[in-house]
Computed example of a mutant assay.
Amino acid sequence: MASKAAQKRLTREYKSISENPPPYITAHPSESNILEWHYVITGPEDTPYHGGQYWGTLVFPPNYPFAPPAIRMHTPSGRFQPSTRLCLSISDFHPKSFNPAWEVSTILIGLLSFMTSDEMTTGSVSTSSAERKFLASRSRWWNSTGGGSQAKGNFATKGNVKAGDGGAKFRSEWPEVDLENWEWMRKNKIDAATGAKPDGDNGSSCGPQLGIAGSSGNQAQAVVDAVVQQRDAGRGWLYRNKLLVAGAAIFIYVLIARLVNGNETLA
């Protein structure tokens, strides 16, 4: 149960973040527990997360703001392990470094900043840009279906939400957003069970080619280099340098011919 100080502080912060939401971020406390906040981050432009819808929770301690919240992101992003506590300077992993002056908006702005960086920590994962774009394209579907599951309830508590609840927890916290997601899936002909388009036109749904690093241009160049190396490996030195050998043979032939002609003249 929240202390009076935490109750007052979080009520004030909800009013503040509702009136002046940070860019790409919206958040609110659960109706049943003011210590459990739910946020949605919209993937910023010029990032692999562009267009993605990332849902997560902040679970505050009863003595907030004198201790930080546990931070989780439930939506698969390719950046964080879903529903796993994140080790950040603004999370409950580092209570001594938390500043009581930091607010919910400060915490979420810090989370977004970390998300778009390449820094690693407990709870983060390393994936390719292609995989993150792929997950972003499926994020609305994942949030509203629980990853395609059919269950209607029985979701975990304390913000620890994973695939398997049929989207029940997301729907209970974000009913309007959930309706928008279903309308988006209808317009885009998304199969609710799989997240794919029935006609097979799924964009990047084949996923990234794991184990191949770098951009597509670098990958193409790597393939070309490998083909050249394999081709040359099966050929001898004479074949690879045939022009040089031919030129040298002609030069020697002309030189010998001139020497022979010179000797015949002297004779």
Rank of each mutant, 00 (worst) to 15 (best):
Y24T: 04
P21L: 00
Q219G: 07
N263E: 13
K152H: 11
D199T: 02
Y253S: 10
W184N: 06
S124Q: 04
A67K: 04
V104C: 05
I190E: 10
K242C: 10
D201R: 15
A248Q: 11
R171S: 12
L255M: 08
A130K: 10
A193N: 15
N188G: 05
S205M: 10
S149C: 03
W142K: 09
R9G: 04
T157Q: 06
V40W: 04
R240A: 09
R186A: 14
I256A: 15
R240M: 09
M115I: 09
H38Y: 09
A249K: 05
H50I: 09
A192H: 07
D225I: 05
L35E: 02
T194D: 01
S117E: 03
L135G: 12
D232F: 07
I212N: 14
V125Q: 06
W102Y: 03
A130Q: 14
A267M: 10
G211T: 02
S124E: 09
K133F: 04
N63S: 05
E173T: 04
R240P: 07
G78K: 02
P22F: 02
L108P: 12
M73S: 12
P175N: 02
D191G: 03
W237P: 14
A257V: 11
E264A: 15
A257I: 08
S30P: 06
S137K: 05
P48M: 05
H28P: 05
A267N: 13
S204M: 04
I25P: 06
W142Y: 15
Y253A: 14
L259A: 15
F114N: 13
R72L: 08
K8S: 04
R132Q: 13
P76H: 06
